[in-house]
Amino acid sequence: MEAGSLQIVINSIAILAFLGVVFGSGLAVASRKLKVESDPRIDEVEALLPGANCGGCGYPGCRGLAEAIVSGAAPVTACPVTKDYSSIAEVMGVEATSAAERMIAKVRCAGGKKEAQQRFIYLGVEDCSAAQNLGGGAKACAYGCLGLGNCAKVCPFEAITMSDNGLPIVDEEKCTGCGLCVKACPRHLIDLRCRLVRCCCTPLRDK
C-alpha cells in the first residue's frame, strides 16, 4: 500500500473515532439530562402482583396496574387475582380496604353432547368462533355452548377444563374473575358472578 493511501486510511479511522467519542459523549449527557425518574414503588408493587398480565383489572398488564396504583388512579385492591392486598398497602403507606366480593366465571349452559342434538358433524378448526361462523355451529340449540373450548384455551390460570360432555367446567378455587373467558365465548354464555350466591327463602303462610 502506498504511503498516500495508508495516510488516508489512518485519517479516516481517526475521524470516525473522534466522531464516535463526540456522539457518545452527547448521548451520555442527554441520557442524564432527559432521564425520567421512575418511582421505585412501581417495581415494588409490580413484584407483589401475580404477573399473569390477564387484564382483569382493566389495565395493560401488571406493570400498568402498578403504575396506576402508585399514581393513585387505582386502589390497592384493584387486582382481582392477588389475595395479599396488605403488602401492597404497606408499600403505598395506606390501609387496605376490603376488596370487592370475589367474582368467578359462570357458564350459562347445561346442554352438552348427551343432551343437545347435533345438526351435522363438525370437522373444522377446533375453535368456537370458527364453528359459529360456519352456519351457527353443529349444535341444534342456537344458544348453547359450542363445546370447542375457546374459554379454556384463553384462561391463563387453567381454571377451565372441558368435560367429556363437551361443556366447560370452572374450578372456583383457580378462577380469578379476570374475564378473558367472557370475551372469548362467541355466544356470550359466560359471565362473572359473585362467588357466594346468597338467597333468602321465606316460608309461605297459610292465609
Rank of each mutant, 00 (worst) to 15 (best):
R32Y: 11
K33C: 07
K35Y: 14
K35M: 11
K35G: 10
K35A: 14
V36D: 09
V36H: 12
S38G: 11
S38D: 11
S38H: 11
P40D: 14
R41E: 09
R41G: 05
R41D: 06
R41L: 08
I42G: 06
I42R: 13
E44Y: 08
V45K: 07
E46P: 07
A47L: 13
A47N: 15
L48S: 08
L48A: 13
L49P: 09
P50Y: 01
P50G: 06
P50K: 07
G51W: 02
G51A: 10
A52T: 12
N53A: 05
N53F: 01
C54S: 10
G56I: 00
G56P: 03
C57T: 00
G58S: 05
G58P: 09
G58N: 07
Y59A: 01
G61Q: 04
C62R: 06
R63L: 09
R63V: 01
L65C: 05
A66R: 08
I69T: 07
I69D: 03
I69L: 11
V70L: 06
V70M: 10
S71R: 11
S71P: 00
S71L: 08
A73M: 11
A73V: 10
A74D: 00
A74N: 02
A74T: 02
P75V: 01
V76I: 12
V76R: 05
V76T: 11
V76H: 07
V76Q: 06
T77F: 04
T77Q: 06
C79Y: 09
C79E: 03
T82M: 06
T82S: 06
K83C: 03
K83E: 14
K83S: 13
D84W: 10
D84M: 12
Y85P: 00
Y85E: 00
Y85L: 04
Y85N: 04
S86C: 02
I88G: 02
I88T: 03
I88E: 00
I88F: 06
A89Q: 06
A89Y: 04
E90Q: 13
E90M: 07
M92C: 05
V94Q: 03
V94D: 00
V94T: 09
E95V: 13
A96G: 10
A96N: 07
T97V: 13
S98K: 15
A100C: 00
A100P: 08
A100H: 04
E101V: 10
M103Q: 15
I104F: 09
I104V: 15
I104L: 11
I104S: 08
A105F: 01
K106V: 15
K106Q: 12
K106C: 12
K106M: 12
V107T: 04
V107F: 05
V107M: 02
R108H: 14
R108G: 07
R108Q: 12
R108M: 10
C109H: 10
C109S: 15
C109V: 03
C109G: 05
A110N: 14
A110Q: 14
G111L: 14
G112M: 03
K113L: 11
K113A: 04
K113W: 03
K113P: 00
K114C: 00
E115Q: 09
E115P: 00
A116W: 11
A116R: 15
Q117L: 12
Q117R: 15
Q118H: 10
Q118W: 13
R119S: 08
F120G: 01
F120Q: 02
I121G: 00
